[in-house]
Each structure stands twice: as structure tokens, then as C-alpha cells.
Design a protein around this nucleic acid. Sequence first.
DNA 1: AACTAAAGCAACCGCAGCCTG
DNA 2: GCAGGCTGCGGTTGCTTTAGT
Length: 304
Amino acid sequence: MGRPPCCDEHGVKKGSWMPDEDKKLTDYIEKHGQGNWRRLPKLAGLNRCGKSCRLRWTNYLRPDIRRGKFTDEEEKLIIQLHSVLGNRWSTIATCLPGRTDNEIKNFWNTTLRKKLLQMGIDPVTHQPRTDLDSSLQLQVDAARLIELHLVQNLVRLLTCSSPASNLDLSRLLGSAVPKNHHQANDTFAFTPQLSSLVNGSLRLPSLLPVGQQTLSANGGHTATPSSTDDDSRLESMMMNKHCGTNSGTFPASVTTPSLVSSPENMSKNETISLEGSTNTPTPPPFEAWDALNLDDFGWKEIIE
DNA sequence: AACTAAAGCAACCGCAGCCTG
DNA sequence: GCAGGCTGCGGTTGCTTTAGT
């Protein structure tokens, strides 16, 4: 049995909203606030169920809604957040001021999902798809290598932050990308995507309680980070600190590789050279994006 | 110009979780 | 502690618009 759905009410109108209905709803909410959605339709003189009114208001009529095409920045942020949060559209929407969960969900399903698929990335796992031909697989391998470097540097950051240093994560990270294969470990060219991801907008979460951080990695650095200033950079991106839910501010520094395969979106700095010294042709954009795939770092677990 | 397919978008539906009495 | 009510969320549907032939 259970509670009957609110839309079982007979004679309640469904389907597209008429301008006069919009006006009634807007007028009512402007005067009285949202209040009880179930009672609202009656009070506002609308022949709709409360659910429909709420949806119409939150997805369309709300004054702070920003309409129009998604920008590249928004697009990238959605993908980043989706790789961490999955289909939690409402959470993702809190990081995109003026955008609704429904709008983001639609954008994902109609546009971004297809783009990722075309780029050889599984839109669910954000991992390279396995059913790729060999040339694509090579590129995927390159991207994995880059990820590995990034992980190494992140581990170093977590284990080596000096009390005296007000360290910039970008410096600590160095880069995910080896300048060439002869300089494998410590000399990296920092991709613009990573530096912008890191500079200012990312804060690393504390992974362990102070005093227990004895991770050993890459030669056995062992340290107990004493500063929390650098700790939550990444967290801030994910957890609304830069989201400006109501302020309308946008994390301008979050820039990631474009998914749009237009030449202007691929700067020379974004090229990833496996062979190092030779300048390889501009790779497909997914390479660069994949280099930023945060999924393998366990951010999901961190956030949860 | 007419038709068809694809894409985009608004809205609906059912469920889960929170709140309150 | 429990049941009912309400809200919010995510998946899905179906209508409208756009692009292609």
C-alpha cells in the first residue's frame, strides 16, 4: 500500500507550464516564500501538484538561474566532479552557481557522456575504455604513466610538507609530466592544467591524524605534516569552498584540458610527449584530460 | 519544401531519507 | 520507537527543435 503519490490527485494538470501559471507561481513565491509545496498550488491558485510546482520553480523560475550554454570551464568542472561524485547531480550543481541539477544531468546525458565515449573514456568509471585499438591504447598507457607520476608527487606532498615552508602545491607536485624520459623522476614539466588545478584552488585533505602520517614512498620519506594550510586544497574544489553556491563566484583557476577537439583548445603546453625530446604532434584531447583523472587517487573514499 | 533522425530540454515518476507528532 | 507526511534526488520519458537528406 503505502502513501499515495501526490500526483494521484484527479484533475491536476500535467505537462508544459503556461506563462500565466509561471506568473502565478512566481508571484506567490515572491510574496510568501516557498513554504509547503504541497499546499502551495492551492494557495497560489494553480491546478498543479506541489511536486510539479517545486520542480518548475527550482529548475526554471528561480531568479538566480543562469541559462545558456555551458562554458568550457563548467564543462570541465562537471567532468571532474562527476569522476569523484558520480551521478550526484545535486551535489555537482552546488559547485556550479546558477545551474540546476536537472540541467547538468541533461547536459551530461546528451553531450558530455558522448564526448567522453568518443575520447575513449568510460563515462561511468572515467577510466580509459579497454575496447580500443592499439594506437589509442598507447595513448591511454601514456596517460596512465602520467597519473602514476602525479600520485607519486601527491604522496610526496602528503609525507614531506615542511613546517617552515608555506609550500605551494604546484611546486611540490612539480609535474605529472616528465620533460623527457632521461629525467624520469624529479624533473617535470608542469602541465598548465595541473598547475591551474593546483594553484589556489586545490587543497589536499588530511588523510591521517597528525602523528600517524608515516607513509613511506618513493625513497622512504617519512614525516609528520604539521601545517594544515596546504592540506585541504583539493577538498575545497570538491566541497564547495570555491563553489560560491549563492555568491555566483566561479573557481576561475580550475582549468583542465578541453574536451573540445578544436585546435584553439590545445595549446602546445598541453602536449604529452612520451618520447620526451621530440615534439610530438598534438595528441587527442582525452590524453590530457586523462592525466587529470583523479579517480585512482581515492578521492571518492576521502570525500565519503 | 517536405520528411526523417538526432539532439536538447522540460517535466514526470518513484524512491529514499528526514522531520514531526 | 513508529508511522505518516514532505522534500529532494536521480532515472526516465516524451515533446520540441534542429540538422541532414
